[in-house]
């Protein structure tokens, strides 16, 4: 069989998602954000949510998420996405409202907004990209930076004495009555990508079914910040990040709506 014979429309098994904008992303080569964006764009199309979705973008590398996925967006102030999403969701209960946040946004400056939105059981999905570093501002320490990890503001490695401990915020969120689903995934292998997609799908379904707050943490790489190649970053993540942030479900949803 020739390549020309294979490359026929009826044989297509994977293509660029329709809801992913034509423009190239500003992300560095190999950045996990692109994969998660792709998953979200695929799901919003597959689930028929294009016209009833509002995404809330963070401050951080994903600040321009609204440029890439073709649904309505609101760009929040740093850390405030869960508050913005709270109102967007309560005032438009027919819509799917999700936040897309990094570790600095969700687990440092926005900790109060994150915990209280989750504690109120807002019917939103929070997509949480945890790469243990501040990418956009040039590689500074994040709340999730591992002990010993070198960043622009911990040039000799993070120490507990100086900077405290890496914050496993998803574990905290899983203990709250308002969350229905908290899971930690990754996108470093095809299988992991598929699992993350299933998790985000479940989170979107929970929000639409008014089951409470869902949190999908995606343990991610920042190869620029980590100063490794994308492939080496994945290896480093598996070796180091997964120890502190093990993959798997932290809380699974019940099938019934909360109210």
């Amino acid at each position: 069989m020739t390549t020309e014979e294979i490359i026929q429309p009826q044989n297509k098994v994977y293509s660029r998602p329709r809801l992913l904008d034509e423009r190239d992303t500003h992300y560095c080569p190999g950045c996990s954000h692109g994969v998660v964006h792709k998953i979200i764009a695929e799901l919003l199309d597959e689930m028929g949510l294009e016209n009833k979705t509002v995404g809330v973008a963070p401050v951080g590398c994903a600040v321009f998420a609204y440029n890439y996925i073709d649904v309505d967006w609101v760009e929040a102030a740093h850390g405030r996405a869960p508050a913005v999403a709270t109102a967007a969701s309560r005032l438009n209960p027919q819509n799917l409202v999700f936040t897309y946040q990094g570790d600095g946004d969700l687990a440092a400056i926005g900790t109060a907004e994150t915990i209280h939105a989750a504690n109120r059981g807002e019917n939103i999905a929070m997509i949480f990209i945890n790469n243990g570093i501040y990418g956009m501002t040039g590689g500074q320490m994040a709340p999730t930076t591992l002990l010993g990890m070198k960043t622009a503001t911990t040039p000799y490695g993070r120490t507990a004495e100086l900077n405290g401990y890496p914050l496993p915020i998803s574990n905290i969120l899983a203990t709250l009555d308002g969350t229905c689903y908290v899971t930690r995934q990754a996108v470093h292998t095809p299988a992991a990508v598929r699992k993350t997609k299933a998790a985000i799908k479940k989170a979107f379904e929970n929000a639409l079914a008014k089951r409470g707050t869902s949190v999908v943490e995606v343990v991610s790489t920042c190869n620029s910040g980590w100063k490794l190649s994308p492939a080496k970053s994945n290896e480093w993540m598996v070796e180091h990040m997964f120890e502190k942030y093990p993959l798997g479900d932290l809380k699974t949803p019940s099938e019934e709506p909360k109210n």
């Binding site: 809330v56 929040a76 508050a83 913005v84 709270t86 109102a87 109060a112 907004e113 209280h116």
Partner: peptide
């Protein structure tokens, strides 16, 4: 949080 809820609501 309250003013950012206002921002989120006003945005819609």
């Amino acid at each position: 949080a309250a003013i950012n809820m206002v921002y989120g609501g006003a945005a819609t």
